[in-house]
Each structure stands twice: as C-alpha cells, then as structure tokens.
C-alpha cells in the first residue's frame, strides 16, 4: 500500500468521523429548507421579528432560550435559564416529542425521527442569521 493510498484512507476515516460526530451537524441546508417548510413553517417564521404561534427562528442557533423580548414564552421554557440553542441542543430537543423534551412547553410537536431530515434542518437553521 502506497503512502498516498494510506493518506487517502486516513482522510476518508477522518472525514467519516467528522461527519458522524455529534458535535457537528453536517446536514444539507438546502434540503433542510424543505424540511423546515413541511415540519416547522406553520408555527415558526425565519423572518426576524415575525412571531407566529411559535417564536421567530431567525438566529436561533446559538440563541439563549426564551430570549426574544416580544414573544410570550411558556413558564417552562423561561425556567431553563441555562439553555442555549446550540446545534446539539436543538438536535436533542427535536428528536423527541416537545412535551417530553420540555414538560409544560406550549410547543406541540411529536419530534422528527428521520435523522437525516433533522441534520438537514439544523444545518438550514444555522444559515438563518
């Protein structure tokens, strides 16, 4: 086996590990836009300042939970003063029913069980800022 072949194998392994890492959500943001439209858009807008039944998701990745001043959050979400919507936090939250992730929440969502859709969605949300 040549050095270049070994190098290529190593690169593939590193890439595979990176894509599989829970720290990075390597989804397809373009596909995530479609996931957003079918799963989220009825209750959430990505437009800044546009709250629907749920708060605007503009700049959601990295935002502190219950931090929009013009949205009336549930007491349950307000109580999570240490929650920040990182990609991993969003992943954890959306991969289960909302009432299970945050008992007392106003959000009515059964969770997104398709792992690819979830990664795509989070990648898309990461572009909204």
């Amino acid at each position: 086996m040549t050095k270049s072949t070994l190098g290529l194998c190593a690169a593939v392994l590193i890439l595979g590990w990176t894509l599989d890492s829970p720290l990075v959500r390597a989804g397809d943001a373009s596909a995530g836009s479609d996931v957003f439209k079918s799963e989220c858009a009825e209750c959430h807008s990505v437009k800044q300042g546009r709250n629907k039944k749920g708060p605007s998701l503009f700049g959601i990745v990295g935002r502190k939970a219950a931090s929009l001043p013009d949205y009336n959050y549930s007491d349950a979400l307000r109580s999570h003063t240490d929650w920040v919507w990182t990609a991993d936090k969003i992943h954890s939250y959306l991969s289960q029913p909302a009432k299970q992730a945050d008992p007392g929440t106003k959000m009515k969502y059964d969770g997104l069980s398709n792992a690819k859709d979830l990664d795509d969605l989070i990648s898309y949300l990461g572009t909204i800022h």
Binding site: E42, N51, K52, K53, D70, Y71, N72, K106
Partner: peptide
C-alpha cells in the same frame, strides 16, 4: 384546508400567537 388549518378549526379558532 391544510392539516394545520384543520387543527385550527378543531381547536375552536382559539389558537393564538399569545401577543
């Protein structure tokens, strides 16, 4: 109606943005 619209109707036209 979309499924979302059906739920709004079922919920008695009461859903709100809370604002």
């Amino acid at each position: 109606l979309t499924p979302y619209g059906m739920r709004f109707k079922l919920n008695g036209y009461t859903d709100t943005d809370g604002n």
